[in-house]
Design a protein around this nucleic acid. Sequence first.
DNA 1: CTGTTAGCGCTTTCAC
DNA 2: GTGAAAGCGCTAACAG
Lengths: 340, 340
Amino acid sequence: MKKGHQITMKEIAKKLGVSVSTISRALKDSPELHPETKRKIVEMAKEMNYQPNLLAQSLRISRSKTLGVIVPEITSHFFASCISGIQDAANKRGYNVMICQSNESLEQEKANIRTLVSSQVDGLLISLSRETNQYEHLYDLYDREINFVLFDRVQEDIPVSKVTFNDAGGAYQVVKHLLENGSRRIVYVSGPEDLYISKKRKEGYQKALSEYGIELDAALIKVSDLTTEGNVKVAAEIAEMQPRPDAVFCMIDPVAVDVLTEWKKLGVKVPEDIALAGFTDNPTAAVVEPPLTTVSQPGYEMGKLAVSHLLDQLDGIASEDPISIVLETTLVSRKSSQHF
Amino acid sequence: MKKGHQITMKEIAKKLGVSVSTISRALKDSPELHPETKRKIVEMAKEMNYQPNLLAQSLRISRSKTLGVIVPEITSHFFASCISGIQDAANKRGYNVMICQSNESLEQEKANIRTLVSSQVDGLLISLSRETNQYEHLYDLYDREINFVLFDRVQEDIPVSKVTFNDAGGAYQVVKHLLENGSRRIVYVSGPEDLYISKKRKEGYQKALSEYGIELDAALIKVSDLTTEGNVKVAAEIAEMQPRPDAVFCMIDPVAVDVLTEWKKLGVKVPEDIALAGFTDNPTAAVVEPPLTTVSQPGYEMGKLAVSHLLDQLDGIASEDPISIVLETTLVSRKSSQHF
DNA sequence: CTGTTAGCGCTTTCAC
DNA sequence: GTGAAAGCGCTAACAG
C-alpha cells in the first residue's frame, strides 16, 4: 500500500484542455470567468474527486490556516476540554489545529514551539508547563513577531494576550464558602510556589480570611509537589496537626481526591472531621464519596475564546495591543464542605 | 503584530556568497561537502536562527512527516490516553500529528478525513464514531491507497490493519469474576447494538455464562443509548426487575457510574443488593463509592502500537498486508463486585 | 566539492 | 475570459 496519487489542477486542466490558472480561478469562484467553463470545471473536479493540496496552497500564499496548540498534558480533563473548544472554534473559522503536549517539561515545550513554527502555523495557543520558569523562548516568539496567546498557565509579564480564569476570585469564593459554613482554621494546600495558580489562589484564600478578620498563619499553608506521594504526605501531616484544622482547601481537585483517599485509610472523616474543597471540577469531583465541593472552570469556553481572539488578531479585526481576558468561575457546593 | 519574517536558505546563501543548494546540503549533513564550508553554514544558520520551512520541504519531497488522527472525543480519558501515546511515538520517529475529533458524528468524521488528506498527511489513525454505520469514506481512502489504521472502534471487514482490545476476553474476565463471586442472574447493559464493542463484549458475557451452564436470558440484556438519561432509565428498570438480578455488567464505566448514582437515589445498595462492574477503568472508576470493578485498557499503549505499525508500513518495514493487533485487558477487581 | 536547473502544486500578476 | 510566466522555499539530478 503506497501513498496514492492525488489529483492535481494540472490533470484537470489537461483533461479539459484549459490552463491551470483557469482551474484555479474556477475553483475559487472568480467572477471574471465564463459561467459555462466554470460549471464544467467544478463538475469535473468533483468527478475526479479533486482535493486541493493545502501544502502547496499554504506555501504560495504564505498562510497555512493552521494553528499550533501546546498544553502540558492532553490526558488532563481540563486541557482536553480546552482543546475541544479550540478545535471547534478554529474549524468554524476554517483553521486546522496541530496539538502538542509538553508533558510539563520546559525542553519539550521549546521543542514543540520549534516544530510548530517550522510547520508554519499562523499562530500559537500556549499553556505553560509547570517547569517553565524562564521565558526566553516566548520572548523569542515575540521578537520574531509570531502571534501567540497564552491561556490558563500564563506568564504575566510577557506583552501578549492572555486568557485566564479569575483564580483569585474562585479561591475567594470557595474559602468564603468554608468560612460561612463555620470553619475558621483553614489549610491551603498549594502546588509549587512559583506556579501562577499557586499564587493566585493563595491571594483569594488570604482575601477571604482577612475579610473574616483571620490572620494568615504560615503553619496552615502546605506545599505539595502535586505527585500522589506528595499529596499523600501532606494529607498525613494535616491529619496529625494539633489542633486539627476545620477545613482544607486544595489548589486542584486531584490533590483533594488524594487527600480524601488517604484520610479514608487514616480514619479521618469528611466532612464530619474536616471539610474539604478542591478547584477545577474534574469529573472525579462529582463522584467521589462524599462529593467534592470545588470551583468549576469552563475549559471549553476558554479554548473558544483564546482562538477567537487569536484569529481576530490575525485577521486584523482585533487591535494589536495585547489584552487580558478573564473568565469567571463558579462555586460548586457539594457534601464535602458541610462540616458544621 | 504581524506574521514575522522567517529566515530562508536564500538569505543565508546571499550572506555567505554561496548557492542555496550548498546550504541545503550543509544543513542535511551531506558528506560531499568541504568541512569548512559546512561548518560556516551551520554556524551562520544558527546565528540567524534559521528554521526550515516544513511546508516547502514537504511539498518538494511529497512527504509531510505528519500523521492525522481522528477520535470520537478528545475529552474522553481513554481517547486522550491514546492520543498521548500516538504523539509520543510519532514524535520519537520524527513525525508530527494533527488531531481531529468527530464528536461521534459521521459527517464530521468524513469532513475530518477530507481536511487531513488535503493537508497531505502521510497516514491516518482512525477510531470510528458511534454514528458510523456506512464505510464508503474508508473504502475510498483504501482505493486511493492512502495509508490508515483503525484503532479501538474499528470496522472488521475493511482490509486495513487494526489495533483493538480483546473486548470479548475482557468481558469474559469480568463476567467470570462475577460468576465466581456467586452471581448467577447477571444483567448486561449494552450500548447501541451495531457498535463493535457492544457485540464483542456481549460475546464474552455469553461465553462466561455458558461455561457456567447458564442459558442466555434475553430479559437480562438491556440496551442504553449511552446518554445519562438512557443510563438512568436502564438503572431504574433494573431496580424494579423481579426477581432482582445478582449483578450488572455495564459495557462502559460511565454507564456503571450513572447506574450507581441512580441506585443511590433509589436506595439500591452496591454491592450488598447487586454487584456492579464496568469496562475501561476510567479515572472515576477508582474513586466512586464503592470503587468500581472494571476492566482496564491500556490506551497509551494502543496509541503507540498503532503509530508504530502505521509508520512501519509507511517506511516499508512492515509488510503491506493488513494485520490485526489485539491487546489484552486486565481485570481490576474492586469493592463494587463483592456481592456475596 | 559546488553551482545551475528544474520542479513539487498552487496563486497571481501581466498580457492578449 | 483565458493563458503564460513567475515564484512561494526547498531538494535533487546533472554538470562541471
